[in-house]
Each structure stands twice: as C-alpha cells, then as structure tokens.
C-alpha cells in the first residue's frame, strides 16, 4: 500500500517537475560546496591581509596533485589524502608569504604591486607543476586521484555519489569550524581585529605576524582541501586551479570580498548558476549550455554595479530592520 502510494507520488512529481531539475539541484549543491571550500581561504586572505591573492587558485592545483600522489599509497583514504593536501599547501602558503609578500609589505608597496606579485607567483607555481607533471616516464599532465566513487543514496531516481556527499559535508564542516574559530577563540578574534584595523591591533599588543602566519596556514590548507575535492570531481591537470580562478573570484566578489557568510552564499549562487540556472535557460529559452561559464562573470559585473559591497547580509542592518518591524526602534546609532 505504502509502496504504491510512493510510486504514485513519484509519478505526480515526474509530471510536474522537468526531468533535469532534481539532478541539477544536487550537482549545483555539490559544486557550490566545492566553491565554498575553494574560496573561503581567499576570503580569509582578503579579510586579514587585504590581498586579492591570485595564486590562491594554484593551491587547488597543488592540493589536487598531492591527492593524486598520496592516493596511490593510500587509495580511498580521504582523511590521509585531505590532511596531506592541507599540510603541503599550508607550507607552500607560508613560504610564499615569507619569500614574496612579506618583504613587499615591509617595503610598504601599493596593493597593485602585491596583486602583480600574486599573478607572478601563480604563473611560477603553474609552470613548476607543469614541468614536474610532464617529466618522467608516466606523465601526470592529466591524472586522477585513486578514490572510489560509488552511489550512497538514490533520491527520485537520481544517484548521489559519495563525492557529492563529501563536498556538501566538507563545506558545512569548514564553514562551521571557521565560524567557531573566528568568533569564539582569541586568535580568531585577533584575526578579525587585524582585518578591521591592523595598526590598532598592533598597539593593542596583538602579535600580528603570528596571526598572519596562522591565517596563511588556514587559507593555503583550505585551498589544498578544495583541490582534493575538485580533483575527485574532475581530472587533475596543471590548469585545474587556473580554470577555477574566475569562478572563485566570482564567489568572493558576490561575498563582498571579506564576508564568510557571503562566501557560502556566493559559492552556492555560482554553483547553481553553472548548473540549474543554465539548465533552466536551456529548457525554457534554448540558451546553449556553452554559455554556462559566462554566468559567473556576468554576476561579477552585475554585483559590482548594483551592490559593490556584495550580497552578504549585514547582521546589524538585519537587527535594525527587525527592531523597526517589531516597533522597538533602534537602540543607538550615528556619531557625535
């Protein structure tokens, strides 16, 4: 009886909802989750040291290749693979900071020099990876991580793989842990303080160098972790990160550059735009799928023109709106 009702419900659902909707939503959620993990380290970099680090995308590439190598020794062991990618990319991030960015910051160069330096670092890493991957007998120019992909659950006849589940769980875990770190620990609050006013942080006795080092460890590590997840989703090549670069920047621009909540929202907006939205545009208006990569760039332009501060909700504005809505007024505001 119950089984026949379930079948009837599925038939009704199939008639009402186009066939592509559920699979594309699931793919959008998974891809959006990957964008969240891949971008949140860049948001942290932008918030704390105000650097739009174009080399961040290369952490994804390095992380994915670490995944390729480590998975040969520990196949399917996501914990070891992820930990190694995090560690290697953290070390790389710290090294880049001390060799390139810190000396430039000490000379108090303008942000333009730092951005150009990050471009140069990105190119350097990409070509080192290229040279390494193309050397030796077994080329790694197109490689795959040794991680078994299998169906975990079937929803409305759509098979959901372990990789999709992993991406979504990882995005939630990273977001929650980072929120706890930044809001509940002294070091995390110090990072927010540095992001807000670095000079005041210094005169308050905050060890800025230490906090910035930890920031690079987290940012680089999360980039590497994002690379491992991205590498399970697609083939690993030396341009894996570069291909994702503009999508990642679309996410952080939608986020208003420094908002973590905005990064989560931005990740899923880009994830949905490159899957569900393009499916809908194709289904209803015949827009070719080839236009999918254009959507995030269109979003960058629209967000910069309409709301350059990003789409992240402002908690104080939200609180003020709620107070007004419920007739309690706003407790304070303005300046003397």
């Amino acid at each position: 009886m119950v089984k026949s009702m379930t079948i009837q419900a599925m038939v009704v659902f199939d008639n009402l909802v186009p066939y592509w909707v559920v699979p594309s939503i699931i793919i959008s959620l998974a891809q959006g989750s990957i964008y969240v993990v891949a971008s949140i380290g860049l948001t942290l970099t932008l918030a704390v040291v105000k650097l739009p680090n174009f080399a961040h995308a290369e952490f994804l590439t390095v992380g994915a290749y670490v995944g390729v190598i480590v998975s040969r020794f520990f196949p399917n062991n996501l914990l070891i693979i992820g930990s190694c990618a995090f560690l290697v990319c953290s070390v790389a991030a710290i090294a880049i900071h001390h060799i390139v960015y810190q000396p430039l910051m000490n000379r108090k160069v303008s942000i333009y020099f730092l951005v150009l330096a990050s471009f140069a670092v990105a190119q350097f890493i990409r070509y080192v990876v290229y040279a390494w991957a193309s050397s030796g007998s077994a080329t790694l120019l197109v490689a795959n991580q040794d991680i078994r992909i299998y169906t975990v659950i079937t929803v409305f006849q759509v098979e959901i793989s372990n990789i999709y589940v992993l991406a979504i769980i990882l995005a939630i875990a990273v977001s929650v842990l980072l929120a706890i770190f930044l809001n509940l620990t002294h070091l995390g609050k110090s990072m927010r303080a540095i992001a807000n006013n670095a000079d005041l942080a210094r005169i308050s006795g905050i060890n800025v160098s230490f906090a910035v080092n930890i920031m690079w460890i987290i940012a680089g590590g999360l980039g590497g972790l994002g690379g491992v997840v991205l590498g399970t989703y697609t083939s690993v090549t030396p341009v894996l990160g570069f291909d994702a670069l503009l999508d990642i920047f679309a996410v952080v621009i939608i986020a208003g550059l420094t908002s973590f909540v905005g990064t989560i929202i931005g990740g899923y907006i880009v994830g949905f735009s490159t899957n569900t939205i393009i499916e809908a545009l194709n289904y209803y208006f015949g827009v070719p799928f080839g236009y999918a990569p254009l959507l995030p760039f269109a979003m960058i332009v629209v967000v910069l023109m309409v709301r350059p501060t990003g789409l992240a909700p402002n908690s104080q504005t939200g609180i003020a709106w709620l107070r007004r809505a419920f007739g309690k007024g706003v407790s304070s505001g303005g300046t003397n």
Partner: peptide, 13 residues
C-alpha cells in the same frame, strides 16, 4: 576601536 567587533570583543583584544 575595532568597528567590526563587538564592545566585549574590543575589550578582549
């Protein structure tokens, strides 16, 4: 003051 931090967080810093 750290404008993005709460009053309590400012004092903690």
């Amino acid at each position: 003051v750290f404008t993005d931090l709460t009053v309590r967080e400012n004092l903690e810093m």
